[in-house]
Amino acid sequence: MGEAVIVVALLLVAVSATAAVAVRDPVRQSLVLAVLGVVLAVLFTVLQAPDVALSQLAVGSALTPLLLLLTVRKVKRRGRRRRENEP
């Protein structure tokens, strides 16, 4: 009975990780990745590894989406500039 919370956390991680792979648009993928980071932190807490969960929270909830979104924005801007220069 005490393992129910571990099972729930594992299921959440499995579903959100599958969704992160299945979603194709990078912007939406970064949103799913942010949720995956939070869910992974919960899983680590449930497995009694709070230090791992702390670093996962610090990296996964704000830093990874920020880097992804900045990259997407830069790639889009560069593509637009190239398209304007071509014709």
Binding site: L11, L12, V15, S16, A19, A22, V23, V35, V39, V42
Partner: peptide, 12 residues
């Protein structure tokens, strides 16, 4: 299960 599960579904 209920809250975070619903948000995982909503974000996907």
């Amino acid at each position: 299960g209920a809250g975070v599960g619903a948000t995982v579904w909503g974000v996907a």
